[in-house]
């Protein structure tokens, strides 16, 4: 899923200050799962903003709404009837959600309340880990299902670097060395020879190499 974290309250407060009628819009999918932008977080942020306005003696109207998905037109359309009642939308969607809402309502000011972070796994309650960069050319079968692009700080394909010590990454001592994990896992499976080949320079054009990416599938088009 896509993970995100809420921006600091001070930053959001400054962002919404010029607007007196605000619609706070959450998203019920990824950012709800990582407890950053679901219905509950929308309610918490909206009440904090109302309270702040009251303390500063400002009259504001702040409403709440959470869409099942903020990145799909069918769900964004639920805003169509009410959107004109507001000066701005404060979105608790990921970056894709903020932009999708803004594309549907180009005259509306749509503000981001979250910092979108990564494609991750819920490791434990309250812990999310980045383990995919969406590079567009999955190579996990070669590296024991541990991604060197996302999980090695240097994105090495012929690792480990010389800084791996006690199974830890030199960059973040609390991060396990991805290459140590890859080697251990393949060794256990008796497939270490898989790493003998010199992995050639990666074709990054499947990732960021040609600018924003687009998927078009005729079988899915109406």
């Amino acid at each position: 899923m896509i993970t995100a974290e809420r921006k600091p309250f001070e930053e959001i407060k400054e962002m919404v200050k010029p607007y007196s009628k605000l619609l706070v819009v959450g998203c019920g999918t990824c950012v709800a799962e990582c407890a950053a932008g679901g219905e509950k977080e929308v309610a918490l942020l909206a009440s904090a903003l109302r309270m702040e306005a009251r303390m500063e003696n400002r009259v504001v109207e702040i409403d709440e709404m959470t869409l099942d998905r903020q990145c799909v037109y069918e769900f964004i359309d639920q805003l169509t009837e009410t959107v004109d009642n507001y000066d701005a939308i404060l979105s608790l969607g990921c970056g894709a959600g903020v932009q999708a809402v803004s594309d549907v309502f180009p005259d509306m000011t749509v503000l981001p309340a979250l910092n979108t972070t990564f494609l991750g796994e819920t490791k434990a309650p309250g812990v999310w880990m980045e383990n995919c960069r969406g590079c567009g050319d999955c190579k996990l079968h070669i590296f024991g299902a541990i991604c060197p692009v996302a999980r090695c700080a240097k994105g090495l394909f012929n690792g480990p670097c010389g800084g791996s010590k006690d199974k830890r990454c030199e960059v973040h001592p609390d991060t396990p060395c991805a290459w140590h994990m890859i080697i251990e896992r393949l060794e256990k499976k008796g497939r270490l020879e898989q790493l003998n080949n010199i992995y050639p320079p990666v074709d990054w054009s499947t990732g960021q190499g040609k600018g924003p990416r687009k998927i078009e599938r005729e079988d899915q088009m109406i």
Binding site: K154, G155, N158, G159, C161, I198, P200, W204
Partner: peptide, 9 residues
């Protein structure tokens, strides 16, 4: 960090 290629590459 660029790391387009690694040291072995």
């Amino acid at each position: 960090g660029v790391f387009d290629i690694d040291s072995i590459q």
